[in-house]
Simulated scan of single mutants.
Amino acid sequence: MKNPIPIDRTAILKIYKPIDAQTHKGIQGHALLIGGSYGKIGAMVLSSKACLKTGCGLVTVFMPRCGYEILQTANPEVMVLTDVQEKYISKIEFDFVPKAIGIGPGLGQELETQNAFHEFLTNDKTTLVIDADALNILSQNKQWISLLPHKTILTPHPKELERLIGKWNSDAEKFEKTIAFSKLHQLIIVMKGAPTFIIDGEIVYENTTGNAALATAGTGDVLTGMITSLLAQSYEPIDAAILGVYLHGLTVDIALPETGYQSFVASDVIANIGKAYLSLEK
């Protein structure tokens, strides 16, 4: 692996697009987030809130029926479409054209959900972010990877990455395998960790924000919402991944003096996205 390109403030200011004073919600993009299952609706609450807070104009969530009241109550700004099934997703249907789709948080791996995911991949070619259980379903059905649109963004943590590319014996081998996987399928891989790396074919980027406080439940769901939001706002996939990861880490750097490591939770990422943006404007 060549030396990774650091994702720092200088790099970010080259891709960051300040809001146009004349903008309206229709121009700011419409994102669709697909996921949730009984007991894991919170993942979609976090993901959709993060999507809105990152600047997306409209956010719709597709989820099982059991999540309807929870999401409408938790995030009144988000629109909700529901599956016919109560506890899991069995068929993915929506009646609009989203600018970007994020799929996977809290999804579960029911057989009907897997079939719905396959049908979705076969028929939909919208720019995608794939996370969590959607990654695990792909790992079990590797032939489906060829259905992904080029420059789809995958956001695996180390275990999810291992299921996708196989075990590795060293960091060097991990990067070698991830780069080969990215090149073969023309996908962008966000290798979550400390630090987080982003791999786009031969090019490797290393994030410079974030700290150990991010190692808590739900922060990955938040990142999915943030990157999907940026895609919906017409950022190129690689720029959406880079900016999303940078802002995500920056929120915890900003919050840490007040929260400390132990009490930082995923909702604190969302609460500090505004401050992270403001720090770019200075």
Results as ranks from 00 to 15, higher is better:
Ile165Glu: 01
Ile165Tyr: 00
Gly166Tyr: 00
Gly166Leu: 04
Lys167Pro: 00
Lys167Tyr: 00
Asn169Thr: 11
Asn169Gly: 15
Ser170Asn: 11
Ser170Asp: 09
Ser170Cys: 06
Asp171Gln: 15
Ala172Glu: 15
Ala172His: 10
Ala172Thr: 14
Glu173Asn: 02
Phe175Met: 13
Phe175Tyr: 14
Phe175Gln: 07
Glu176Thr: 12
Glu176Asp: 12
Glu176Arg: 06
Glu176Val: 04
Lys177Asp: 00
Thr178Pro: 01
Ile179Val: 15
Ala180Met: 05
Phe181Asp: 00
Lys183Tyr: 06
Lys183Gly: 00
Lys183Thr: 02
Lys183Met: 10
Gln186Ser: 15
Leu187Trp: 13
Ile188Ala: 07
Ile189Trp: 03
Val190His: 07
Val190Leu: 11
Met191Trp: 04
Lys192Asn: 07
Lys192Gln: 08
Gly193Asp: 06
Ala194Ser: 14
Ala194Lys: 14
Ala194Arg: 07
Ala194Leu: 13
Pro195Asp: 14
Thr196Asn: 12
Phe197Thr: 14
Phe197Met: 08
Ile198Cys: 13
Ile198His: 06
Asp200Phe: 13
Asp200Gln: 14
Gly201Arg: 09
Glu202Leu: 15
Ile203Lys: 15
Ile203His: 13
Ile203Tyr: 06
Val204Phe: 12
Tyr205Trp: 15
Tyr205Phe: 14
Glu206Ala: 12
Glu206Met: 13
Glu206Lys: 14
Asn207Ser: 06
Asn207Phe: 08
Thr208Asn: 02
Thr208Glu: 11
Gly210Cys: 11
Gly210Tyr: 12
Gly210His: 07
Gly210Gln: 11
Gly210Thr: 06
Asn211Arg: 06
Ala215Gly: 14
Ala215Cys: 02
Thr216Tyr: 00
Ala217Tyr: 00
Ala217Arg: 02
Gly218His: 05
Thr219Lys: 01
Thr219Gln: 02
Thr219His: 01
Gly220Phe: 11
Asp221Gly: 11
Val222Lys: 03
Leu223Ala: 07
Thr224Gly: 11
Thr224Arg: 10
Gly225Cys: 04
Met226Ile: 13
Ser229Trp: 09
Ser229Arg: 04
Ser229Ile: 05
Ser229Pro: 02
Leu230Met: 04
Leu231Trp: 14
Ala232Asp: 09
Gln233Ser: 11
Ser234Trp: 10
Ser234Phe: 10
Tyr235Ile: 08
Tyr235Thr: 08
Glu236Leu: 14
Glu236Ser: 13
Ile238Trp: 05
Ile238Ser: 10
Ile238Phe: 13
Asp239Lys: 14
Asp239Arg: 04
Ala240Arg: 10
Ala241Leu: 09
Ile242Asn: 02
Leu243Gly: 06
Gly244Asn: 08
Val245His: 04
Val245Glu: 09
Tyr246Trp: 15
Leu247Thr: 08
Gly249Pro: 08
Gly249Leu: 04
Gly249Asn: 08
Val252Asp: 00
Val252Ile: 07
Asp253Asn: 13
Ile254Asn: 09
Ile254Met: 04
Leu256Gly: 00
Pro257Arg: 01
Glu258Trp: 01
Glu258Gly: 03
Glu258Ala: 07
Glu258Tyr: 05
Glu258Leu: 13
